[in-house]
Design a protein around this nucleic acid. Structure first.
Lengths: 232, 232
DNA sequence: AAGTGGTCTAGACCACGTA
DNA sequence: ACGTGGTCTAGACCACTTA
């Protein structure tokens, strides 16, 4: 970064400082980008880049002609990284292991069809698998794969390679949805996860699409004590 | 948008398409920005903006001198909005209500000090409060506020105004951390949330700082059935 | 109708990391 | 050392929205 010149991140900090210090409070209108550029002695596009970031972060609200205002109800916007399970475990320094529990065909239950936004119910590949960290259950994965969208998965030996990994590498998506919720372990899940029935488990439900065709729907159930952290 | 000219989002889509179609697979090196700019007939900075976004989305990896490569292990990067609880309920069309359960002073437990990254343990304001949707418990909030960083909260009548809302409006932060996990309701929580002990509940733990001084640490425990959705 | 944000362009220079 | 991404600048024009 060149000395004496402001980067757009510097500009963002400067403007954020104005807000933190109360120079501009919630609902207040900020000066036009052009005027800020003059005040801070930088190009307007630099201010624009900074403002775009403040807007993305939910701190500021911008409207053409209406100008820029400090948001009344700031939103906490958190970003989460959900890596491949194998990598997640290896990055923690754990030993990864994987076990295929079931592989079958059938019509997905209604909840899955709804999540995929499907009216009819074609047969899909059903996969149940367990990811282990240092020999202990880490994540149980209950997955449905749409074989019309991702037919090549039928050639994969899922007892060796996890669908999680194969899909992420070989079936890129254009859109996805994620849901987080807590559930009580039922009898079977408790056995699989080596815990007691009714244990509270974090579930991460993910659906991916290639354009408008669903690829897969997975419910990943994490072992007790699992914590999902936001990116710094 | 001007016709005949490519916006950086168009460029991002074009490049993403190259990846989806297999023209460039995982690990492959993409051409230099400058060459892509020539191929697509746009400015290099437009390609740069598109690439920055693809990099932010975890699709591509960029290194100075090393060039740009398609990521081997794509990461699912989800963004979550965590609004003020009152707004969250009202946006769902629910009737919001709020009850202060406890307001006291004391030393925070060790877990809170660790989360705040504090070695010593000053007295802090402790708040327990319940947010209700249509008269039913929705979120139980267990909060510690550092009164040296946010002293003005002592003047607030917390039986009327929730600390959640007051802090978000009046104590802006520069940094925060969020954790998600599942927990079994204990006896007291079960009573407060009008559910049964051992129910699985989603907990959202959040810590905020103003520069390096902690502001608040809150564990928000959601009612059974609560689901957290990613932003589209 | 006019003002404000949104974006593109072309050129320049910097900074980082690999070869 | 040098190639590649990262960013700034100044100007231009567009697009949206509200006064």
């Amino acid at each position: 970064m060149q000395a004496g010149r402001l980067s757009w991140k510097d500009v963002r900090e400067a403007i954020h400082e104005w807000i933190l210090s109360g120079r501009y409070g919630p609902g207040d209108k900020l000066p036009r980008d052009a005027d800020i550029a003059v005040e801070l002695a930088c190009a307007r596009s630099t201010v624009q880049r900074a403002m775009q970031d403040l807007s993305d972060s939910g701190i500021v609200e911008r409207r053409r002609k209406g100008g820029t205002r400090v948001r009344q109800d700031p939103v906490v916007r958190a970003t989460l990284d959900i890596p491949i399970t194998r990598r997640e475990i290896e990055d923690r320094g754990g030993l990864y292991d994987y076990r295929l529990i079931e592989r079958s065909f059938g019509k997905p239950p209604r909840a899955v069809r709804i999540a995929m936004n499907l009216s009819d119910a074609p047969d899909m590949l059903r996969i149940e698998a367990l990811h282990l960290c240092d020999g202990r259950p880490y994540i149980f994965e209950d997955r449905w794969v749409c074989t019309t969208t991702a037919p090549n998965i039928l050639k994969v030996d899922l007892s060796r390679d996890s669908a999680n990994e194969w899909l992420v590498r070989n079936a890129p998506y254009t859109r996805f949805e994620v849901k987080f919720f807590a559930l009580n372990a039922d009898q079977r899940t408790a056995e699989l996860m080596a815990t007691t029935p009714r244990s509270a488990l974090l579930a991460i439900e993910r659906t991916t699409w290639l354009d408008d065709r669903p690829i897969t729907h997975v419910t990943a159930i994490a072992a007790p004590g699992y914590r999902l952290l936001s990116r710094s």
